Amino acid sequence: MPATVVAARRLNRAAGTLAASVLADSSVEHYRGSFKNKAMYTPLLVSALTLGVSAHGTGDARPVAHRVRDASYLLAAATGLMGTGFHIYNVSKRVGGISWQNLFYGAPLGAPMAILLAGLLGFCSERVRESRPGQRPEIFDLPAGRTMAAVVAAGLLGTTGEAGLLHFRGAYHNPFMLLPVTLPPAGAALLASAALRGPGRDHNLTRWWLRLLAAMGFAGVGLHAYGVSRNMGGWRNWRQNLLDGPPLPAPPSFAGLALGGLAALGLMKDRSDA
């Protein structure tokens, strides 16, 4: 199988992981908001569509882009941009406007960016997949591997900012709450360095660090589940504590980005011109 198809399928898997996280997280958060605005159904529908086309792409071994997947990923990216605008409006219209109180308890500003990143990774996967044999894999005339590494690095920093804000609200009462604000920035720096240095280099440290981030993302679900259990009533009062406790679906967004970074490094390793 061509290296470009392998990388594309890995990117589809990363996009699907992010989409699954968004689907579960937005379902809980928007249910808590009683779907007051009918537009709140949009991220559920779009993330479900993105998850479906990502699963299709993960199983597709053909070296050609798929129009439905392409359109779905672009829709996901547009939804993320519009959702960010809606969330900024939600926070700014509250009494006090943009303030710590409203940033803590209003619509999370960084949450919609996860579906935007899923769309970007998926769109990149289709560009890599359609690369012609013998030609350098490119995204907008830029080397695909290095471009994806830069995109994932930026995504890690943004996701860290969102986690840092909410964990600051929780006063970092558990030392494990420091992990998502310390490990991802280091991973972003390593990926940025890989993007600048290019292929043909030893990126073993970056690769292992991304694997650590992926493990952290999935392990975070367990830590958040423990956080839910510490609320009054624990899991016996799950209907309330799932809504008010730490969000279970949020941490896997780090895993999705880490998988995207690993796909970029894999392509850079397999293709010296990527």
Rank of each mutant, 00 (worst) to 15 (best):
A15M: 03
T17M: 13
A19H: 08
A19N: 01
A19L: 09
A20V: 09
A20E: 03
S21F: 00
V22K: 02
L23Y: 01
A24N: 06
A24C: 02
D25F: 10
S26D: 07
V28K: 01
E29C: 11
H30F: 08
H30E: 03
H30M: 05
Y31Q: 08
Y31P: 00
Y31S: 05
Y31N: 10
Y31V: 11
Y31H: 10
G33D: 12
F35G: 01
F35P: 03
K36H: 15
N37I: 14
K38A: 14
K38D: 15
K38T: 14
A39K: 09
A39W: 15
A39T: 11
M40Y: 10
T42Q: 11
T42S: 09
P43G: 00
P43K: 02
P43I: 05
L44S: 05
L45F: 11
L45W: 09
L45Q: 08
V46R: 02
V46L: 01
S47P: 09
S47N: 09
S47I: 03
A48R: 08
T50D: 03
T50N: 05
T50Y: 08
L51N: 01
G52H: 09
G52L: 03
V53E: 02
V53L: 00
S54F: 08
S54D: 03
S54H: 00
S54L: 06
H56P: 11
H56F: 14
H56Y: 14
H56M: 14
G57A: 01
G57L: 00
T58C: 13
D60S: 03
D60W: 03
A61L: 07
A61G: 05
R62Y: 04
P63D: 01
P63F: 07
P63A: 04
V64I: 12
V64Q: 12
A65C: 09
A65T: 02
A65L: 05
V68I: 05
V68Y: 12
D70R: 15
D70E: 13
D70Y: 15
A71N: 12
A71L: 11
A71V: 07
S72F: 01
S72E: 07
Y73N: 02
Y73H: 06
Y73W: 03
L74A: 12
A76M: 06
A77S: 07
A77T: 12
A77K: 06
A77Y: 04
T79A: 07
T79R: 05
L81V: 11
L81Y: 09
L81M: 05
M82S: 13
M82T: 15
T84V: 11
T84P: 07
T84S: 11
G85S: 10
G85P: 01
F86W: 13
H87R: 00
H87L: 06
H87C: 02
I88Y: 05
I88R: 07
V91P: 11
V91Q: 04
V91R: 00
S92I: 12
K93S: 14
K93M: 07
R94D: 02
V95A: 14
V95S: 15
